[in-house]
C-alpha cells in the first residue's frame, strides 16, 4: 500500500485513490487522423522509470491530479504538470 501525496488532502493510502494511468494528451477529435487517435487510445510509453500519471482522489477530495512516480521503485515526486 503505497502512499500517494494528494495535493489537497496530504499523504493518503493508494487504496483511497484510483490510478488513471500515464498522462496522455488528447488530439483534437474533430481533426485527428484515425492513426493519431488510436496512438492516443492505445500506445503507451510504459517506461521502467519516471512516469507522469494521473490519480483520482476517490475517497478524499475527489480531485484529479498528476504526480511523477518511478515505476521501478515506486518513489513519488511532484509533477511539473500539476
Amino acid at each position: 500500500m503505497i502512499v500517494v501525496p494528494c495535493p489537497n488532502c496530504g499523504p493518503r493510502n493508494s487504496s483511497d485513490l484510483r490510478n488513471a494511468g500515464e498522462l496522455v494528451s488528447r488530439p483534437d477529435p474533430d481533426t485527428a487522423s484515425l492513426t493519431e487517435w488510436r496512438s492516443y487510445l492505445y500506445l503507451r510509453e510504459n517506461p521502467a522509470g519516471w512516469v507522469t500519471e494521473t490519480w483520482y482522489c476517490r475517497t478524499g477530495c475527489r480531485r484529479y491530479f498528476t504526480i511523477e512516480r518511478n515505476t521501478a521503485t515506486n518513489e513519488i515526486r511532484d509533477s511539473e504538470n500539476s
Binding site: 503507451r44 510509453e45 510504459n46 521502467a48 515505476t71
Partner: peptide, 18 residues
C-alpha cells in the same frame, strides 16, 4: 512484462502497460 522496453529499442511502440 519488459516487452515495451525492448520494443522501444527497435522504435516500435506497443499498446502495452506493465
Amino acid at each position: 512484462g519488459w516487452a515495451s522496453l525492448i520494443s522501444n529499442m527497435a522504435g516500435v511502440p506497443l499498446a502495452i502497460t506493465t
